[in-house]
Computed example of a mutant assay.
Amino acid sequence: MSRLLLEEYGLRQAHITLLREGENSVFRVDIPSGERYALRLHTAGRHHPAALDSELEWLDLLARNGAIPVPQPVRSVSGSWVASLRVPPAPSLLCTLLTWLEGEALPEGQEFTLTQAEQAGEVLGQLHTQAEQFRPPAVFERPHYDAPYFLASARQLQQNITTFVDRQRLDRLNVALPQMLRKLGPLNDIPGGFGLIHADVHPGNFLQQETGLALIDFDRCGWGPFLLDLANADLALEPEERAALITGYTRFRALPAGYEHPLKALRVLAMIDNLAFLSERPEELPFVLEALPVVETALVAAAGSS
Rank of each mutant, 00 (worst) to 15 (best):
G185S: 01
R86I: 14
G79Y: 04
V268M: 00
P91Q: 04
E108N: 04
S153C: 05
R86Q: 15
R172P: 05
F218I: 01
A120Q: 04
V123H: 07
Y249G: 03
L62W: 00
L187F: 13
S33L: 11
T96R: 01
Y145G: 04
E241A: 13
S305Q: 14
R251Y: 09
N205S: 06
W58E: 00
S76I: 01
R242D: 08
I31V: 15
E8A: 09
R142I: 04
L127F: 12
G66N: 08
G248I: 01
E290W: 09
E280Y: 09
H144G: 05
L213C: 10
A147Y: 10
P203F: 02
D273P: 07
D219W: 01
L269R: 01
S33R: 07
P107T: 09
L5N: 08
P143T: 06
M1N: 10
R86N: 14
E102T: 05
I272F: 08
Q126N: 08
Q158A: 13
E102W: 00
Y145Q: 03
P88C: 01
L235F: 07
F194Y: 15
A131H: 04
K264S: 13
L98R: 06
R64K: 14
F112N: 08
A254R: 12
L19S: 03
A243R: 10
K264D: 12
L299V: 09
R86W: 15
N174A: 15
A51Q: 12
E238R: 13
C95H: 06
T115H: 08
P225D: 06
P186M: 05
